[in-house]
C-alpha cells in the first residue's frame, strides 16, 4: 500500500467506510510516516477550529463607496504572467521531447556495414546490413 494521504484526510472528515478505515489503520499500524502525517493534519485542523470568529461591524458594507475598477488595470501583469507560463510550457516541452537525432541506429549500422565491407581485413565476411532476417524471430 502506498502512503494513503487522501484516505487520512477523508478519515478526518469522517468520509471513510468501516472497511476503508480498517485498511487505513492496518497500514498506519506499521507506518510511522502516515501516523505523523495524520497527527499533523489533526493539529492543523484543531488550530484552525480554535481561531475566534470575528463579527463584521454593522454598517460596514452600507458605508462603503462602490468603485468601478477598469478591467485593463492589471492587464500588463496578466499578459506578463501568461507569457511566462507559455515560455515555461515551451521550455518544458522542448526539454521533455527528445530532439530527433541526425542519425538512427539503422544509419549507424548501415555506415559501419558499408565501411567494414571495404576493410582489407576480412571485410567481405563481416559486412552486415540492418533489418536482415533473424533466425529467432
Amino acid at each position: 500500500m502506498t502512503h494513503p494521504s487522501e484516505m487520512i484526510s477523508a478519515y478526518l472528515d469522517g468520509e471513510l467506510t468501516r472497511a476503508e478505515s480498517s485498511r487505513l489503520f492496518t497500514h498506519t499500524g506499521s507506518c510511522g510516516r502516515c501516523v505523523a502525517e495524520m497527527e499533523a493534519m489533526q493539529r492543523v485542523r484543531a488550530a484552525v477550529r480554535s481561531l475566534p470568529m470575528v463579527e463584521m461591524p454593522p454598517g460596514l458594507l452600507g458605508d462603503a463607496e462602490p468603485v468601478v475598477v477598469p478591467l485593463h488595470r492589471n492587464r500588463g501583469l496578466w499578459v506578463g504572467a501568461a507569457a511566462a507560463a507559455v515560455a515555461l510550457v515551451i521550455a518544458l516541452a522542448t526539454m521533455l521531447t527528445p530532439t530527433p537525432g541526425a542519425l538512427s541506429v539503422d544509419d549507424l549500422n548501415s555506415r559501419f556495414g558499408a565501411r567494414v565491407s571495404l576493410d582489407p581485413a576480412f571485410g567481405p565476411a563481416k559486412v552486415m546490413v540492418p533489418d536482415v532476417r533473424s533466425l529467432t524471430e
Partner: peptide, 25 residues
Amino acid sequence: VRDAVVSLEQAAGELRVSGEVEVSS
C-alpha cells in the same frame, strides 16, 4: 543469442549485401 541470415553476392571486386537497405561496395 543474436542470429541472422544474410545474402551476399560478389563479382569483379564488388560486393552486394541484401536487406531493406542494400550495401554495395
